[in-house]
Design a protein around this nucleic acid. Structure first.
Lengths: 255, 255
DNA sequence: CGTTTCGTTGAAGAGTGTCAAGGCCAGTGG
DNA sequence: CCACTGGCCTTGACACTCTTCAACGAAACG
């Protein structure tokens, strides 16, 4: 756990809510989080809906499998992972989430969450009570469409992960993973070439269907081929085209 | 192509619509497809929405990646697969769909479909124009909730597939696959122990992240252990508990 | 400064993939 | 009716990727 956080008094779960006024209109993630062209009155309805925020410290969970579903969450700050667990205890990371992304949609189907979501660094999310979301979405068609698109986008994202898990080699998976992170960091105004992995090798491996040793070895190999520089969690992409080349059928050429 | 179909005059794509009156209220799939407790007026709105059906012959596609998204489809009869394709031409089956299941939600995010969906046997779907679905869903909250749950269920299903692809061995994947089919057939009133695989070994393999030879070998191994009987596409599950045992950590015990 | 967690690397082995040959079955045409 | 064709499935032998096991090094934390 990181030392020196100035939030020391707020770590009991039920007191980690922040009741400060939420201002979506000022949020620098609104292009990621919200549809374009919301009118002022619509934004006011929205800000009434997204009334609270919640902080999760590194290692704590936002929700767990089995928890009653009540809200969706928009990541405001930080980094999380979602995992599912099989009956015999195997864990699979189903996704990593960062600023502007929406979490918790797995819970709608059953009124119960089916995955665990854990913060990989100190994180803040906007709480979106689902019942009220449905009302607001009814009243604001733009928002309703947007909500449907976000759910659909999650489905499409998962199709991509299935493609990756089902038909790619270790090198291709990791190249695709790094490029995906790169692009998402860039969309948030960070460097697309240089970033810090918030997750461990084991978590990357779980997401990509590989063992942590394989992840480590492939990263070292990439570094040896001057595609990237790696130093523990710090990664710099020095040859993005090389990575793209690996993703799109380098294997098709060499095999 | 099968001979002797009495629909010979309807194979040009644009004439494969059937404008017969759709009657959700009489449909024997309504428990799978619709929420419980719809009032009569609600059902009438629904039947106005789901006004047309469409037939797809074996091998034909319902929609393709890149097609403009206009409708969702509910399977009334038949069997389909969805596939995504990577830039370098690798194909991944993302799911198999049967009676009562909803298709096409990938298209909402972009107004463009991102996967191909192909009939594996002669199939009939109910066409649900998306724009009108949104209106009807607004007017009928039960239906709106149901729609959201169906999308969420698709997300949860894909989490399960990710777990399978990311952390299971060939035998576990196939055992899980057979049990899943078994359960879905049972829910539709068919035998849960004896059924016909509508897809080829290669398609099963693509879905499960395996090669067709591995699928064939594992099925033979299961047959050798008297878990199932296989004869080409015909499968009989003789020891479902054995299969369940394989799914839940047989490997954890023996390794 | 010791402890723990995380990451790297090597060697050996298991599990799938690849390649190749042959069998089964349905549909086709003689 | 039969032989032929092509698609699908099965099986074997071998190659290869990834995992497993183990040891060690580096960083984070109290």
């Amino acid at each position: 756990m990181k030392a020196g956080s100035d939030e020391g008094s707020m770590n009991a779960p039920n007191f980690s809510f922040s009741h400060l006024k939420v201002a979506c209109s000022n949020c620098n993630l609104r292009e990621l989080c919200l549809p374009l062209g919301l009118s002022l009155p619509d934004i006011e309805k929205l800000e009434e809906l997204v009334a609270t925020r919640r902080r999760i410290k590194r290692g704590e969970s936002l929700f767990r499998a089995g928890d009653r579903f009540e809200s969706l969450y928009a990541v405001r700050l930080g980094f999380l992972k979602s995992t599912v667990m099989s009956s015999d205890g195997r864990e699979q990371v189903t996704g990593f989430y960062m600023g502007g992304e929406l979490l918790g949609m797995d819970g709608i189907s059953n009124e119960t969450h089916s995955c665990d979501t854990v913060a990989l660094e100190d994180t803040e999310v906007c709480v979106i009570p689902y019942e009220r979301l449905e009302d607001v979405a009814n009243a604001v068609p733009v928002l309703r469409n947007h909500f449907h698109k976000v759910m659909s986008r999650e489905i499409v994202r998962e199709h991509g992960v299935m493609l990756l898990l089902g038909s790619m080699h270790a090198e291709e998976r990791l190249a695709a993973f790094l490029l995906n992170l790169s692009q998402r960091f860039e969309a948030r105004g960070y460097s697309r070439t240089e970033f810090v992995l918030r997750m461990t090798r084991a978590e990357i491996g779980s997401f990509l269907g590989l063992k942590l040793e394989t992840v480590s070895r492939v990263l070292s190999r990439f570094a040896g081929e001057n595609l990237i520089e790696v130093n523990q969690k710090h990664v710099r992409i020095t040859n993005p085209d090389g990575l793209r080349h690996i993703v799109s059928g380098q294997s098709a050429a060499s095999c």
